[in-house]
Amino acid sequence: MAVQPATLNRRSFVYRELAALGATFREVNGCAVAATLAAGRAAEIAAARDLGLADLSGLRRGGYKGWTALDWLRGQGVAIGENNMTLKQGDGSRVARLADSEAMILGDLAGGSALLDRVEAGWSITGALGAYPVPRPETNFWFAIAGRHSDTMLAKICGVDLRPHRFPDGAVAQTSVARMSAIIIRHDLGATLGYDMIADSAAASYMWTSLQDAMDEFGGRPVGLDAIVALAAETGPA
């Protein structure tokens, strides 16, 4: 059911920009998420095969930091890979190891994370001594960049080589993007090349605008969450 962002306590950091693009919002986790924009689902799926930008800021995410954080998470049954790599978990969540002392957990595209629900319920300051939660839903925006031009577009604003043959699915780059510190994670959607971008929520509008500026020459444009979900459900060639 469509909702107005201002009627909810949580809304995207770029909800005004999304509303100006004709977004239809629906509630996910108590947050207004742009499901589609003015172009509509079918046109946005087609656009995102080439280059699309979507706001996932309403979706579930979190993480833990501290010298015992990784061991504590492993004890909770979380699979953790090498530094700067992401491992997909049984419930569809992804766990990105950011350092020897930090991991970030990203929920699925439906907005849930059974893993994060379980881990958060099991955490206490005394029970997980030295492992501290990182409140990423409030401090970080989360954008998805999809499409066959996304690596070329990102090369304009990021010094790390993100081309698919150098930066495998699940790889993490913690680097400078458009002169801002950001986390980039390769996350292909079905057969479509894709990246997550997570960075300081206070600069969400700046990055949203900067990315559109960088996307212009490739015909890239913002799309709703539904287009990202549809691409992720595909298994054939893009």
């Binding site: 530094n83 700067n84 350092a99 010094g159 790390v160 780059a173 913690q174 680097t175 400078s176 510190s181």
Partner: peptide
């Protein structure tokens, strides 16, 4: 740009440091 090799993140532009 000058490159510094970060033990965690690999070779990066010096402007990140």
């Amino acid at each position: 740009m000058k490159i510094l090799n970060c033990p965690l993140n690999g070779p990066r532009n010096i402007s990140e440091f």
